[in-house]
């Protein structure tokens, strides 16, 4: 996946770039709209991560220009504005997703991936981790080519882990991913634990290995040792 990050906050941009680079993705950074268009004309990208507040222009009008010229590129807006009308306007203008700051890098990665895969036309749209395979179209999960039955939340959880494999996912990031802002109590962490327990059980019952590791004090990590 090749990404262009348009973000004028240098510190945030470097964190995001490093995160994606570790995944094996290419992430380039432009700190202004002018630089972004320069890069867009020179190279092609799969997904654009766009901050709406740039020093040289209003993000929404930039978005309009981008959607006119690069129609097949996915756009995820990352904005400090959690304003509902900005979100609606952004999506109306053709953005694929809207993620308010501050966000978990894992969440950004999951959203960018979803946009990327949704736009990819060729071939089967699947995600896999060793013997586990997720079909992104019908949300079917196969373990060793055997279909397993997951609830919607369990599927979302597994998808989140596979996209962010080998990464530490905090309980908070998982809770926010599953329930959004509704869930900001400490209770949610128990719910996360229950879901992970169930998911682990279902995968192992189908003959899969236990890849969901508990990182004590922080959260969970999906990895193959």
């Amino acid at each position: 996946m090749k990404l262009l990050l348009v973000e004028d906050q240098e510190e945030l941009a470097s964190s995001i770039r490093n995160y994606f680079s570790k995944e094996g993705d290419v992430c380039e950074v432009a700190d202004s709209f002018a630089k972004a268009t320069e890069k867009l004309y020179a190279f092609s990208y799969d997904v654009l991560l766009l901050d709406l507040m740039l020093p040289d222009g209003d993000g929404l009008s930039l978005l309009r220009v981008i959607k006119e010229n690069w129609t097949d590129m996915g756009v995820v807006i990352i904005s400090a504005k959690n304003a509902l009308n900005d979100k609606l306007k952004g999506l109306e203008l053709g953005a694929d997703d809207y993620l308010p700051k501050p966000f978990h890098l894992a969440e950004l990665n999951a959203r960018a991936n979803a946009v990327y895969r949704r736009r990819k036309q060729d071939g089967k749209r699947t995600l896999s981790f060793n013997e586990i395979e997720l079909n992104l179209d019908n949300h079917e999960v196969m373990v060793n080519d055997k279909s397993i039955e997951l609830t919607r939340k369990e599927y979302e959880l597994l998808h989140y882990f596979v996209v962010n494999q080998n990464r530490l996912l905090t309980k908070q990031a998982i809770a926010e991913h599953l329930w959004g802002d509704y869930m900001d109590t400490m209770d949610s962490f128990d719910f996360v634990y229950q879901h992970i327990k169930n998911l682990r059980k279902k995968i192992m019952e189908a003959g899969g290995k236990d890849y969901l590791k508990t990182v004590y004090g922080a959260g969970y990590k999906m990895k193959d040792e």
Partner: peptide, 16 residues
């Protein structure tokens, strides 16, 4: 929100 986003991202890098 912007500085919070920076802190958040740095903490994640740190935790990783």
């Amino acid at each position: 929100q912007t500085p919070l986003a920076i802190v958040q991202s740095k903490l994640e890098v740190l935790m990783d």
